[in-house]
C-alpha cells in the first residue's frame, strides 16, 4: 500500500515542488514542527521532509521540497495519482504553541519558508503578533508569499541580489527589529549557515538583545526514531543530542553549528556519484529510446 499524491505543483521551475499526499492518520496526528521520512522506491534512501501543511478534514498532508540530489529528484518525478512507497511519521518534537508577551519573529531562508509556515500559523492562531522575514538568493526562488502574508502581521522580504524586497541577508532586518522593540521568540529555519548567523545575532554576545531562538536542524537521517545516532548534533559544551527525537526544533544558542556544517557534507562525494550515476542511466535510456 503506497501513499497517494493527490496534488502536485511546481513552485519554482525544475527546483521546488509542492505535493499533497492523502494519509488520514498522519494528518490527524501532525503538529507544527513535525517531519516525515520518505522512501521513493525499493532501492531508495530514507530522507526527511517537514510537514509544510496539513488538512485534517481532507485527510491530507503537504510537503514542499527542493531538488538537491537523487532522492529529491526521484520524488519530483512522481505525478498526481502516483504513490510514494513509504511515508513514515509524524516524527520529531512538537513546538510549544502559546501566547507570548511580545511579538514572535520567524526567519525563513530558501526552502525553509515551507517548514516555517505551520509554526507561524499555529502561533498566529494562538494570538501572537508575527513578523516574518523571508530570505532568498533571488526573486525567482521565492514562493508562498501570499500564504506567509496571511499568517503574519508584517512580512519582510530580502534577496541577495535585491531583485525583490530589501537587498541583503535576513540578519539585517532582524537586527533592526530587535534593537527597536522587545521580542519574545525568534524562529529560524533555513540553511545551516543562515541559522548559525541568526543564532549569533540573538545570543546576546554581539551587543544585540538576547532572545530565545529556535532553529530547525536538517541533519542527515535514517530511521528518524532515535535508533542510529546519525542525525546527532553537539552542543557548544560538548553534549550529544539526536535531531530526530530531541529536535528538529532546538535551542539555537547551544548548537555547535560549525561541527554540524562539517557533518552535513560527509557523504558529499557519494551523493554526487549517486546523482550522476542516475542521470547517466537516464541519458543512456533516452538515447536508446530515441534510437529505437
Amino acid at each position: 500500500m503506497g501513499y497517494k499524491i493527490i496534488k502536485k505543483k511546481e513552485l519554482v521551475k525544475n527546483l521546488i515542488y509542492e505535493m499533497e499526499i492523502y494519509e488520514k492518520q498522519i494528518s490527524k496526528k501532525s503538529q507544527p514542527g513535525n517531519f516525515l521520512l520518505f522512501r521513493v522506491n525499493e532501492k531508495g534512501e530514507r530522507f526527511p521532509l517537514t510537514i509544510a501543511d496539513y488538512n485534517r478534514e481532507k485527510g491530507t498532508i503537504s510537503i514542499v521540497f527542493q531538488v538537491v540530489g537523487k532522492s529529491t529528484k526521484l520524488l519530483s518525478l512522481l505525478n498526481e495519482g502516483d504513490e510514494i512507497l513509504d511515508v513514515i511519521g509524524p516524527l520529531g518534537n512538537n513546538i510549544q504553541i502559546k501566547k507570548y508577551k511580545y511579538p514572535v519573529i520567524v526567519v525563513a531562508g530558501g526552502i525553509g519558508i515551507a517548514p516555517c509556515y505551520p509554526q507561524a500559523r499555529a502561533l498566529k492562531e494562538a494570538g501572537n503578533e508575527i513578523i516574518i522575514i523571508i530570505g532568498a538568493r533571488t526573486r525567482d526562488l521565492l514562493f508562498w508569499k501570499e500564504k506567509m502574508a496571511l499568517v503574519s502581521d508584517q512580512l519582510i522580504i530580502c534577496t541577495d541580489d535585491g531583485s525583490e524586497g530589501k537587498k541583503g541577508v535576513v540578519t539585517e532586518p532582524l537586527k533592526e527589529i530587535i534593537i527597536e522593540q522587545p521580542i519574545s521568540l525568534v524562529i529560524a529555519i533555513g540553511p545551516l549557515i543562515m541559522m548559525k548567523y541568526v543564532a549569533k545575532t540573538t545570543d546576546g554576545k554581539l551587543g544585540f538583545p538576547k532572545i530565545p531562538t529556535m532553529v530547525s536542524l536538517n541533519t542527515i537521517m535514517i530511521d528518524g526514531t532515535g535508533m542510529c545516532g546519525g542525525c546527532r548534533y553537539s552542543s557548544l559544551d560538548g553534549k550529544i543530542y539526536f535531531a530526530c527525537v530531541d529536535g528538529p526544533d532546538v535551542d539555537g544558542h547551544i548548537v555547535n553549528f560549525d561541527n554540524l556544517i562539517q557533518r552535513s557534507i560527509r557523504f558529499k562525494e557519494k551523493e554526487i556519484i549517486s546523482l550522476e550515476n542516475y542521470e547517466n542511466k537516464c541519458k543512456a535510456i533516452n538515447k536508446w529510446e530515441s534510437n529505437n
Binding site: 532501492k43 530514507r46 542510529c228 557519494k270 549517486s274
Partner: peptide
Amino acid sequence: VLSANEFLTRANLMKAYNFPDYDTPIN
C-alpha cells in the same frame, strides 16, 4: 565516528553495500 547501529543499519537494512545501485551511502 558512528554508532554500530548507524553503520549496520546503513549496511544491512538500507543495503549500502550495494551503493550506488542502492541509494544509501556509507563511508
